[in-house]
Design a protein around this nucleic acid. Structure first.
Lengths: 392, 392
DNA sequence: GGTATTTTTATCGGAATGCGAATTAAATAA
DNA sequence: TTATTTAATTCGCATTCCGATAAAAATACC
């Protein structure tokens, strides 16, 4: 009970950045008494800091000046990572989610044995932590964002395009290697929370995010919480069926996945660019040069995505949908056909309910989102009793 | 806070039917002290009853015998209704959700003016209440289950096949007519809760229900709660897009809706049967007589539903999906093609996660589900203070 | 039949939590 | 310097939860 209120107060402080107690009391509907008690204990635990200056109301007001409270950035550090097929991005962030150091590794890891991938990730985490002038034992938690179908609760990777194996208990594996609590989460969920904390959904507690990368993912925010299917499964949009043809089931991934657009044969025209992790950027160049085959693929992908998107909006009716991912880099042909298919497919009855927003975030933002996943768990953990010791 | 625990205890008693305090304490993780206090207040308010006999453990145990607690059926009465295009079914239930009286009106109401429909519903409610030997002021709440897209929170009917108008504030309209709090809810949500309370999802707090009627609806139960889109919108599966063809968007409803299967031209072969509300039953007869046109329509509908179903399972990954609705009456051709399309379209990665269950409930069950919607709100309301006076 | 045992339920006291009212703190305005 | 204003804290009270203990109500044993 107190835990809930503590979390609410902490979250209110985080959202505001800097806020006075009385304002917290306003927003949380808690009495000033209770807010005082909770903030006292948060200060005591070193999770927040008090600052005398910084009152936004023009200083020309009378009365006792407000004491602004804000998160203590040094209360914790976490590592967030985006693991993709051809690159890994790591960030170390402080308790506010501010990035302290970044590390990008451009290397193709998919279909390597688990051990190799784990080695690379372990190495990346360690290097990024060193870059932040920290030691691994100063890190409170690690979160890895992977593509695929992942059970958040258990850290079980059911399927992922970067693993040959299915059903990998990756959270356990990495926790043991690093000696730090490690969470495994869908990359789409990570970027969803990144947008909720820092991006284009800061003002919303309900929204849907669609990620168009190698894998097509979905994040649903419902009441400020990630909506996870029963069992904490992440969603995999690429598995959505568009039709059943003579060659079997046609899935969204086969039309709109990165490999579907670029073609992933080792001898394909994009083989070199893909290997270097610049597939979509290269494709964009060719599209600008009016490469008709590619423009056609982009248009077909856009149509398929637009339709799938309309169906998702039909089911969830969120006030906003954010589209992210490397496929957006394909530019006009893709985006226009997506928008058009979407507006054709969206049922009239909920037209106007949902706003489409496109966002081209950097990979660092995705990694930061993973860090947010880790931070949220810290926020909810029972600090008061025997949590990780806050830094001085 | 106490309200939450009160609700939990009450719900535990409801689920068990008859249960001793110590067992409640076990299941809710509350101390026996707290359970005693809460049950005392529930007894005081007349919401539950104590019974000395009925202990299921063979009477040959020593120790103080358990006092079994159960809901007081007389603590409240509600009306639930299923309003469909060609029929209305009303039930009056007691506090346990047991049906006290039923009334079925077989009449075609769709496309009538709102006022006419409201008249008919008002009349049905009043007659059903009289049939239960009650007066309207003994009814605590009314819930109407309608097809369409409905905002539960506000009782706003955005679109419904039975209304010509869109954006009708129907809850307000009926509340004023009846002088009783009236809730408007999607019929799919009603039958979802009916299955949670009495039917094939009694054991589950997470599941998905798909209703295949004139309208194709969806109910998602998540953590024991109905999952409603932002804004409390109900879902409308019929609006799901299957593809964009030359004639515009092809929606699921156009292949799998009742009118798509039977044809709804006034001069159609089923016109008479539909008018009498026996469309699907009649269709079944013809299918059994090997009417090829109809069998073809049923197969196409089944395929479309199976595909849509697979997509829903991909998104929600529930442990169980319950399919209900009049279309199930089409029999083998429909069901077999549905199952086949489903198993082709379901992605391998989540094969085995979800169990399909078919259920042919009577309309009364749907109305009972609407009653459950009303009862759930009563359960959560603050009885202790100034709620509706419990019957003696 | 009387006492011990067992099991369930109720009671008592302590700890935690939240809130309203009153109080204190710290600034500006007069 | 004093009054006013606004923010934050302190005090006292009411809830509510829980653990420990006591009471209740049955059977088991001698």
């Amino acid at each position: 009970m107190r835990a809930i209120n503590r979390f609410n107060v902490l979250d209110t402080i985080r959202r505001a950045g800097s806020i006075a107690r009385i304002e917290i009391s306003d927003r949380t509907q808690l009495s000033t008494t209770t807010v005082s008690a909770i903030t006292a204990s948060l200060l005591d635990d070193g999770l927040i800091l008090a600052r005398t200056e910084g009152d936004l109301r023009e200083a020309a007001t009378r009365g006792r000046p407000r004491v602004m409270l804000e998160l203590n950035p040094r209360a914790a550090r976490v590592v967030g990572a985006k693991i993709a097929a051809n690159r890994m991005v790591f960030v170390v962030t402080d308790f506010c989610g501010e990035v302290l150091s970044t590390l990008t590794l451009a290397l193709r890891v998919d279909r390597q044995p688990i051990g190799v991938i784990a080695d690379l990730i372990e190495d990346g985490v360690r290097r990024c932590v060193v870059d932040a002038n920290l030691a691994l034992d100063e890190i409170d938690s690690v979160c890895l964002g992977l593509p695929g179908v992942i059970e958040h609760r258990t850290g079980h990777v059911r399927t992922s395009p970067i693993f040959r194996e299915s059903g990998v208990d990756f959270a356990k594996e990495m926790s043991e290697r690093l000696g730090v609590t490690t969470i495994v989460e869908s990359d789409a969920h990570a970027i969803t929370l990144a947008h909720h904390w820092f991006g284009k959904a800061r003002d919303l507690d309900d929204m849907v995010l669609v990620s168009l990368e190698q894998t097509l993912g979905l994040g649903v925010l419902h009441g400020g919480q990630l909506f996870r299917g029963a069992g904490g499964l992440s969603h995999n949009l690429g598995d959505l069926t568009l039709g059943i043809g003579p060659q079997g089931t046609v899935r969204l991934a086969s039309l709109a996945g990165e490999s579907a657009i670029l073609g992933d044969q080792p001898s394909g025209r994009f083989a070199e660019a893909i290997r270097l992790g610049r597939g979509m950027a290269h494709a964009k160049t060719l599209i600008d040069a009016e490469d008709n085959a590619l423009i056609g693929a982009a248009i077909r992908a856009g149509e398929a995505c637009g339709m799938a998107l309309a169906n998702i909006v039909t089911l969830f009716a969120p006030p906003r949908v954010i589209l992210v991912g490397s496929s957006l880099a394909l530019g006009q042909p893709f985006l226009d056909s997506l928008r058009e298919a979407y507006s054709l497919a969206i049922p009239p009855s909920i037209k106007g309910v949902t706003e489409l927003v496109f966002d081209q975030s950097t990979d660092e933002t995705w990694a930061q989102g993973a860090a947010v996943v880790a931070l949220r768990e810290l926020y909810e953990s029972p600090w008061g009793t025997t949590g990780p010791a806050p830094a001085l």
